[in-house]
């Protein structure tokens, strides 16, 4: 497989890999590194790529496993993933207060607080619009488990969002 061909295969879903990695790792830099790593791994496996009937699903599963491993190793070594995506929470600068009030960034923060599995299901379904069968395959979950996780994730987001709305911030 030539580089151009490979890129044609990979391009349509590289953003999906990145978004899933970012959802799990939160930090943009970490997610970029993870995506780069996954794409390189795919490139080195390019000979066997043709035998997979669904490269995208394969790559998504790789990304999921890679990120979970990464999170585990960070936890094991007692390191927190550092990221600079959101501004300082206690900052008094007006700019940041305005940003924090933005409901959309609330949803993002709420999603970050979800358990990893719910996070992934919600990401795959509501952001990437995968079918249930695909999510089951990607995450290696049972159909009912996917629906339960998804329903719980959606309801949690709704509850926390209403809480934030009614109590305001802080």
């Amino acid at each position: 497989m030539k580089q151009a061909e490979f890129l044609n295969v990979v391009m349509p879903f590289k953003d999906k890999l990145y978004r899933l990695a970012k959802r799990l790792l939160v930090s943009s830099e970490e997610a970029e590194d993870a995506t780069q790593e996954i794409l390189l791994k795919l490139w080195t496996k390019k000979k066997s790529i043709e035998s997979y009937n669904n490269v995208e699903a394969f790559a998504m599963t790789m990304t999921k496993n890679f990120c979970l491993d990464r999170l585990k190793s960070k936890q094991a070594s007692n390191l927190k993933l550092v990221h600079s995506n959101y501004g300082d929470e206690g900052s008094t600068s007006l700019q940041k207060q305005v940003e924090a009030r933005d409901s959309l960034s609330w949803v993002e923060k709420i999603m970050d607080e979800l358990p990893e599995q719910q996070k992934m299901v919600l990401q795959l379904r509501d952001v990437e619009q995968y079918e249930y069968e695909e999510i089951e395959e990607l995450l290696g979950m049972k159909p009912t488990a996917v629906r339960v996780a998804l329903s719980r994730a959606r309801k949690t987001v709704r509850e926390r969002l209403i809480q934030k709305h009614s109590y305001g911030i802080g």
């Binding site: 953003d15 978004r19 970029e32 409901s103 993002e108 509501d126 987001v157």
Partner: peptide, 14 residues
């Protein structure tokens, strides 16, 4: 905000 966020989140690019 939920639905709007999902639409926005999908726009993120590598």
């Amino acid at each position: 905000p939920m639905f709007q966020y999902f639409a926005v989140a999908k726009e993120e690019r590598y």
